[in-house]
C-alpha cells in the first residue's frame, strides 16, 4: 500500500501485539526494520524470521527500557546497525498495570512512567542526530488518555503525557522536517488486554465502541504504516484514535 523502500525503522516493543504488527506492516512496505524487545527474544526472532521470509530486512535488538540508560543503549545499538539515518521511530513499548488508587505503589507509578514516558522521550533525544529531514516519529497513546476505561489511572496518565509530548515534539521538531504523531488505540486484542478474553470484558469493550468488533493489532499496524509514509507528509502533532469510534 505504501512505499517505504530504502527507509530504516526502529519499532520498540515489537516482539508481540501492536509493535509486532507495526514492524511487519513497515517491512511489508519495504522498510528495513529493527525489531526491539525487552524480554521476548524468541518472539522477536520470530518476527524477524517472518519479515525475512517475506523478503524483507529485519534485525532483533534488545534493551531494557525500564532502565534509566535503556534508551541511550538502544539508540547506540540502532545507530550501529542503520548508521547515520533513521527514517521511522515507532516508540510502541509500553506496560500497563490495573490498580486502584489505593493499590498503586510508588514503585508501580515510577515504573509505568519510566517505560511509557521517560523511555520514548529519551529515545527521541538520543536518536535526534540521525533523525533527518523527512523522518517521522510515531508514539503510542491510548483511549485511556481521554476517558476512563477501567481502574488504570497511572497508565492513563502516562498516555496523557504521550499526547502532550506528541504536540510539543511536533512543534519543536517541525523546523527540522521531523514529523511526530501518535496512534491512540482503544481495546486491541493483545496480551496487554487479557480482560477481553472474558465475556464481561468483551461486552465492556464493545459497549464503548461504535464499531462492534474487537480491534486486532493489524488495525493499528496499517495506521502506523500510513503515518510513516509520504502520504502523511503533512500530518504532524496529531493523535489518530484507532478505537472503533469510542467515546464520541
Amino acid at each position: 500500500m505504501y512505499n517505504l523502500s530504502g527507509k530504516t525503522a526502529l519499532v520498540t516493543g515489537a516482539s508481540r501485539g501492536m509493535g509486532r504488527a507495526s514492524a511487519i506492516a513497515l517491512a511489508a512496505s519495504g522498510a528495513q526494520v529493527l525489531v526491539h524487545y525487552g524480554r521476548g527474544a524468541k518472539e522477536a526472532d520470530g518476527v524477524v524470521a517472518e519479515i525475512r521470509q517475506a523478503g524483507g530486512r529485519a534485525d532483533a535488538v534488545a534493551a531494557d527500557l525500564a532502565a534509566a540508560d535503556g534508551p541511550h543503549k538502544l539508540a547506540k545499538i540502532a545507530r550501529d546497525i542503520v548508521g547515520d539515518r533513521l527514517d521511522i521511530l515507532v516508540a510502541n513499548a509500553g506496560i500497563s498495570k490495573a490498580a486502584t488508587i489505593e493499590e498503586t505503589t510508588i514503585e508501580d507509578f515510577d515504573k509505568l512512567f519510566a517505560v511509557n514516558v521517560r523511555a520514548p522521550f529519551f529515545l527521541v533525544q538520543q536518536l535526534l542526530p540521525i533523525l533527518s529531514k523527512g523522518s517521522c516519529v510515531v508514539l503510542v497513546s491510548s483511549l485511556a488518555a481521554r476517558g476512563v476505561v477501567g481502574a488504570i489511572p497511572v497508565y492513563a496518565a502516562t498516555k496523557g503525557a504521550i499526547d502532550t509530548l506528541t504536540k510539543h515534539f511536533a512543534s519543536l521538531l517541525g523546523a527540522r522536517g521531523i514529523r511526530v504523531n501518535a496512534v491512540a488505540p482503544g481495546v486491541v486484542e493483545t496480551d496487554m488486554s487479557n480482560f477481553i478474553k472474558t465475556d464481561a470484558g468483551r461486552e465492556f469493550a464493545l459497549g464503548i465502541q461504535a464499531l462492534k468488533r474487537v480491534a486486532q493489532p493489524d488495525d493499528v499496524g496499517g495506521v502506523v504504516a500510513f503515518l510513516a509514509s509520504e502520504d502523511a507528509r503533512w500530518i504532524t502533532g496529531d493523535t489518530i484514535h484507532v478505537d472503533g469510534g469510542s467515546k464520541l
Partner: peptide, 26 residues
C-alpha cells in the same frame, strides 16, 4: 489524508477528525 481514511488501512478509525495541517493545531 482523505484517501487514507477511505481505505482499509483505516478500518478501525471512525468518528475521527484527522488534522492535516503541518502541525498547526499542535
Amino acid at each position: 489524508a482523505a484517501v487514507f481514511l477511505a481505505s482499509d488501512q483505516a478500518s478501525f478509525v471512525t468518528g475521527q477528525i484527522l488534522n492535516a495541517d503541518g502541525g498547526k493545531s499542535a
